[in-house]
Amino acid sequence: MEDCRYFEELISARLDGELTEQEEIALRAHLEECENCRAYRDALRAVTGAEADLPAPPAELTGRIMDAVRREAAPGKTEKIVPLRRYLRPAALAAAAALVIWAGWRTLGPKGSAKTAAAPMAPMAAVSMAAADSAEAEEAAPEEAEIFMAEAAAVPAAGLDTGSEANGDEARDAQADAETPLVTAATADSVNAAAKTEGGCRYILCRGANGEPLSEGTADADALRALLAADKPAEIPDRAADYILTLPDTGENWLLWEEDGGMIIREDGADGAGRTVSAEVFRATLGVAE
């Protein structure tokens, strides 16, 4: 019966509490007269109870989920950055040079001034120079150099110096309170896809004092130089750097602060004021998506 099809829908909707008053009245009237529909109503009632008997989730499910989520959030999750454990090398070269670079970053004070401890670094630099002559250094391919830098970035997380962790927490809190950052880990893949150009300048962008790698790639060398040579002076904000831009080809480290929709940059080891670059130019040069 045509009528019954309409009423069957009402019967189903009544199970979900979605009937209007008029529909309720009409349905009741129909059910008084129609045995089939009464049977249908009872049938749906019988079937709808089926989900009541469902088990509780396993106790460790939350833990499993949060572990998996944290793996997604961890440093080194982007495609190009290889997980630390794969490249742990007992070689002195790795350890010594990692300490050199890490020690350089570590001098970022909470005031945002990058004091370079030139003297303490010298002996370590000597060690790394000596090690650089070894056969292992010669065998190192360019990709390994990039990965090696990422490994250095991950080193602070190993807790080599408890002092840096305090700075890292401050930087992280500052970032959490700040506006949505220009660069997030989620956009890193698009950066990596975009930025490979011939004869370009390689870069690695890391987050703040804890050195969490965000993206890496190759930028047009001229554009990058123009970016870094921007000439609008700006005062360095009163906090640790938001980002660090490392150029593996030249060994330069540039500190960046997000401020007022733009970026303030200063080379690590320099003193005095920084310089402002616009966010658009920064994004365009490094191929960073919004």
């Binding site: 509780a56 989730p57 939350t62 989920i65 989520v69 970032q175 959490a176 700040a178 949505t180």
Partner: peptide, 17 residues
């Protein structure tokens, strides 16, 4: 979204069942 991964956990516990 601003980087606090631990803040995700209550969303998990409330919705996992």
């Amino acid at each position: 979204l601003s980087g606090d991964t631990d803040a995700f956990e209550p969303l998990v516990t409330e919705n996992q069942t």
